[in-house]
Structure formats: structure tokens, C-alpha cells
Amino acid sequence: MTAITIDKATKVFSSRDGEEVVALSDVSLDIGENEFISLVGPSGCGKSTLLRLIGGLLPLNAGRILIDGTEVKGPQVKTGFVFQKATLLEWKTILENVLFPLKIMGTLDAKSKDKARELLALAGLDGFENKYPAELSGGMQQRAGICRALMHDPDILLMDEPFGALDALTREDMSIELLRIWREQPKTIVFVTHSIAEAVLLSDRVVVMSPRPGEVKQILDIPLPRPRSFAVQKDARFQEKVDEIRHLITGK
């Protein structure tokens, strides 16, 4: 089943002095249901832009994007967004932050709190419900951010370099955590990252993009067995894919 269809998506930004920059040019891509797909590429290749287009946060200039066959016209309930920074509301507790989407969408009910607690427990944050974001480490904040994106039970999780602001050790832990959460709550995940190893470790497929204008250069299958752990990095195929992607990006 195809969850997301991207059909010749084109996005042009005009800067203040009227200059036009083509961020994405004729990008086409089909993403399957419950697939984990990563977008990698150098800065300016339009991977974050593509994510925002799927999320309906930006309008397209040409082409179209369909989610479950319906054209994306703006933000919708089928997607949940995880940002590079945790973007938690400093004045709300972790529990209130996780409930925030439901509050905005007006769908809070008696069971919401229990569900939020379950999600927090799933992300290893039980006991932190009533803490404020400032009291949590960067990794824990980002876990809360992921819980928040899962709260309204979206079919699709859009993640924009979610671990980019974390230190290297936390980052590795978080990728394995994410795989665990994804196993327990299968979703279609579109994951933007700068880290090739992270992309290979997590994904079913890796989309390598190239800049100026942003285009899809190649799509690679990652035929590594699941469930995956760090041990997978010792697999020869893992290294092979990492090298292949690096070569595609840097030409070396």
C-alpha cells in the first residue's frame, strides 16, 4: 500500500530581493505504508523542504503530494511532526506538552491523559510527567517531542533531523529507541538526517538527494534484517551501503 505519493513536486523560494531559488525540482517518490524512509543529502538539497511539503506546512509551486490518495492542501491530522529541536512549551509540564496537539485540535477527552502516560512510558519517560522541559536533558526532551507527535495517533511521522541537536552517545541510543517505538506502534516514517550511518541503521530505503536544484539522485534499498541493533553495523552490507551513499553524496 502506498501511504504517500509525491508527484513531480517543485518548490521555489523567492528571497527578499526577488531572487528565486529552486529548492525542489520535479521530485517524485512513493512511500509505502509503515515504511521507514530516510532523506539524506548535503545542506540545501531540499530534504527539510520536502518534509514540510508532505506535512502541508508549505505550499507547492508545482506537482502534487497525496496522502492515502488525498491531495495535501495544508497541515492535516494524519501527520505528526518532530522538529530538530524538541520545541516543547517551556511553561507546560511534559504531560501537558504531550497533550498539546489534542488541546489544539479540540479532541481532549477523559482517556487522553492515560494515553499520554502510556506513550511517555513507552519512551522511557515515566515519572517525568509533571516535570518542566527545562528540568530534562536534551535527549529526554526530544523523546517527549516524539511522544507529542504520536499523541494524536498519526499514520505518518515526519522527522526533521530529530537527533541532530543531541550529543553522539545520546543520538545512538535514540535511534535504537525510535526503532523500538516504531516496532510497537508501526507508522510510516519519513526521516531527514545528515548522518549516513543513522539513515542506513534505521531505514528500509534511503533517498539520496542532491542540491541546486533539490532533486532525488538515487533511492537505495537497505536489505538488513530487522529488528536491528548496533550489531548491524558490523554487517558487511551495512558498511557497503554507507560507502555507496557517501560516494553518491560526495563523489568520493
Binding site: L57, G80, F81
Partner: peptide, 14 residues
């Protein structure tokens, strides 16, 4: 207010 927070609100159609 950081753009991220505004985007967060928008993503839930605030």
C-alpha cells in the same frame, strides 16, 4: 517566539 513553535502550532492547525 521561535519559528519552530509557530510551525508546531500550524502543524496541528492552530
Amino acid at each position: 517566539v521561535p519559528g519552530d513553535l509557530i510551525e508546531l502550532g500550524r502543524s496541528y492547525r492552530a
